[in-house]
Each structure stands twice: as structure tokens, then as C-alpha cells.
Design a protein around this nucleic acid. Structure first.
Length: 349
DNA sequence: AATACGTGGAG
DNA sequence: TCTCCAAGTAT
């Protein structure tokens, strides 16, 4: 078993400075730790950096977030993806305020919306000094290599979780659970990387079974994933006299749930011909098909969209909200921004 | 257990 | 262009 002291010593010399990370002895705000953990789910540090700062600026406390309208939270999360996170974040803030603060341990945290096994452990360790080892992709990789686990993910997940939990048997880890967790993250992010691990620089190099076997770069193995089908959609950009565009709010659940969208057809495997598409238009108007298509990759399918545009016929009041094009670009999911950009509106750039 | 759920960057 | 991947969660 590699020594926690070795990893912590390495961490003390090489720790990354990150906006959500408290310096030695600095106080830790559970709200900030929790926000960063949710934002970092399946999202890179580089992406989160500026968005985290902006979010905190707008919602400085859990109370401010709890009291905010959903539309404001959605706008602030726009472009970050996995929008269930934003819905759960908002619901969680309300729950935390209602109960008078964050639960200070993992079981309590895991009962809150949007907080699963990983996030509960991470917040418990980092904000509340609980002896937990949060198991994220970094920790899975580090652990799979240390023990040379050849079983592919996600099947190997329980084994890796059990192996990682044993790190906390080391008193040095128990003395600094939050730092130990973040040391594992840093190790995975900077040394024990997915492609070509820098084993020569690794504080745990000597205890690593995969390194000894010469298979570190090949671990963890992953089960093959399903192919992504191509789907098609047709969307409708309605412009009013002031050059604003019509957006509407998607249903709470499912893809892009609760976010603003440019009205359109459902997304299906078959392409849409004009007559079929126009049945889904938000208003009867002189629609014309714009040249080009917009493409966007989702996790489980690829999407190709066409865009129809029309001015609002006088006297019509369609369902939805009017937004200036420039503002709309910043308030919608990326897939919708691509669509708006396809129209090359005067103020959209 | 398997699938749904976004996006941007690296190689 | 394309594949992989990033501090996962909910159902």
C-alpha cells in the first residue's frame, strides 16, 4: 500500500491553485465547495474556472441562490451542459436553507438533490474533514493502476471504490482528508493522466503494479460504448419589429430540461421535409429556409438542424418570450446558440 | 444494469 | 474529422 504521507508531501509542493480551493489554514465555505463539485461534474477545470467565479458573483451565498428565480439560475448555467445539475442545484439550495445549513457528513449530504456518492464524499472530506475518499475518474484511474485492475469500467467500479476506501486506513490520510482527496485529484490530473502518465514524476511510482507490469497507460480499461445515431431537427427563428427573437422554455424534465430554446420540431432519425416541419412552427408566417445547417454532438446522439426564419406577422401573439439576439445567445444552451448563429443576425456577434 | 444527460478541448 | 475524456447523478 502506498503511503499517504508521500502523496501529501508531493501535494504540499505541487498543489494546483484553484479558485475553489482554500489555502492552508484558510476557512472552507461548504457552499463554495459544493458549488465547485457540482460544476466540475464531467466538466473540465478550464471550463469551470470562469463560470465558477461568475456564478459566485451572481449568487454569493446559498441563501441568494435559494431565493433566485429559476430563469436567472438557468441563464447563469447556460452553456455548461448537463442542465439537471442546475435544476438540482437550485432545489438543493432551497433544501439546505430550509434545514438551516449543509449536513456535515456524507450520508446527510447524499440525501440532497444532485448530490450522489462522489459529491457527498468530496464535500464531506473537503468542507467537513470527514475521513472519506471521493471516487471520481481520477481516483478510479490512480487506483486501477496502483492495483493493476484489468477488469473494465464500469464493472470494476465497486472494486476500485473498495480499494480507494482503504487509503483512509492510513493515519496520515485521516489527518487531512480534504487535502488527501485533492491530492488524488491533482495526481490524476497532472501525473497519472489518461494517455501518457508521467510515472517518473509520480510519488507513488514504486508501489504501482501497473507501472511494474508496463501497462499503466492502458488502464483503466473501459467497456466499448454504443454508437451515436444522427438525428435531424428543423427550427424556427421568429423576429419581431425590434429585431428580437422568440424563445420558449423547454419542459422541466429530459434533454435541456427547463432551458430556453428556439422553437422547432422534435429530433428524430429521419430528416424533415418542409411541409412536415412547418406543422411545428410557432406561428403561421412566411417561413424561408436559411442556407446551411447547424451540427451539435450530444452524449448519445448527433444532431443536424436546419433553420427557418420569418418576421412576426402583425397582430400575432405567439407563445414564448422575446429576447434581443445578443442576450439570447448568452442565455441558451450551446446547441441553440449554434442555431441562432446560423441566422447571422445583425447583433448576434 | 443500462441508459439519459452537454460541452469544449486535446491528440 | 473523429475519438476520447472531464471532480457524476438519476432512474
Amino acid at each position: 500500500m502506498p503511503s499517504a504521507a508521500d502523496l501529501l508531501a508531493w501535494y504540499d509542493r505541487h498543489r494546483r491553485v484553484l479558485p475553489w480551493r482554500a489555502g492552508p489554514g484558510e476557512s472552507r465555505d461548504p457552499y463554495r465547495i459544493w458549488l465547485s463539485e457540482v460544476m466540475l461534474q464531467q466538466t473540465t477545470v478550464a471550463t469551470v474556472g470562469p463560470r465558477y467565479a461568475r456564478f459566485l458573483d451572481r449568487f454569493p451565498t446559498v441563501n441568494a441562490l435559494a431565493e433566485a428565480d429559476w430563469a436567472k439560475v438557468a441563464e447563469e448555467w447556460a452553456g455548461l451542459g448537463y442542465y439537471a445539475r442546475a435544476r438540482n442545484l437550485h432545489a438543493c439550495a432551497k433544501a439546505v436553507v430550509a434545514r438551516g445549513g449543509f449536513p456535515p457528513d456524507a450520508p446527510g449530504l447524499e440525501e440532497l438533490p444532485g448530490i450522489g456518492r462522489y459529491t457527498a464524499s468530496a464535500v464531506a472530506a473537503i468542507a467537513f474533514d470527514q475521513p472519506m475518499v471521493p471516487v471520481d475518474g481520477n481516483v478510479e484511474r490512480v487506483t486501477a493502476r496502483l492495483a493493476a485492475v484489468e477488469e473494465p469500467l464500469p464493472g470494476a467500479k465497486p472494486r476500485l471504490t473498495a480499494l480507494a476506501a482503504r487509503f483512509m486506513e492510513d493515519p496520515a490520510a485521516r489527518a487531512r482528508p480534504g487535502d488527501f482527496a485533492q491530492a488524488l485529484f491533482d495526481l490524476g490530473a497532472t501525473i497519472c493522466t489518461p494517455r501518457s502518465p508521467a510515472c517518473a514524476l509520480c510519488p507513488w511510482c514504486e508501489g504501482c503494479a501497473a507501472r511494474r507490469a508496463g501497462i499503466a497507460a492502458a488502464l483503466p480499461r473501459k467497456s466499448p460504448k454504443a454508437a451515436r445515431p444522427l438525428r435531424h431537427g428543423a427550427h424556427f427563428l421568429l423576429t419581431d419589429a425590434q429585431g428580437r427573437i422568440l424563445l420558449r422554455r423547454r419542459p422541466e424534465k429530459g434533454l435541456l430540461g427547463g432551458m430556453l430554446e428556439v422553437p422547432g420540431t422534435p429530433w428524430r432519425v429521419g430528416a424533415w421535409d418542409a411541409a412536415e416541419a412547418l406543422a411545428h412552427a410557432p406561428a403561421a408566417a412566411p417561413w424561408r429556409l436559411l442556407p446551411g445547417t447547424a451540427r451539435h454532438g450530444f452524449t448519445h446522439f448527433e444532431l443536424e438542424m436546419v433553420l427557418y426564419a420569418a418576421p412576426l406577422p402583425s397582430g400575432l401573439v405567439p407563445e414564448g418570450e422575446w429576447h434581443a439576439a445578443a442576450a439570447a445567445r448568452g442565455a441558451v444552451p450551446t446547441v441553440m446558440r449554434r442555431l441562432i448563429d446560423l441566422a447571422r443576425l445583425p447583433d448576434s456577434a
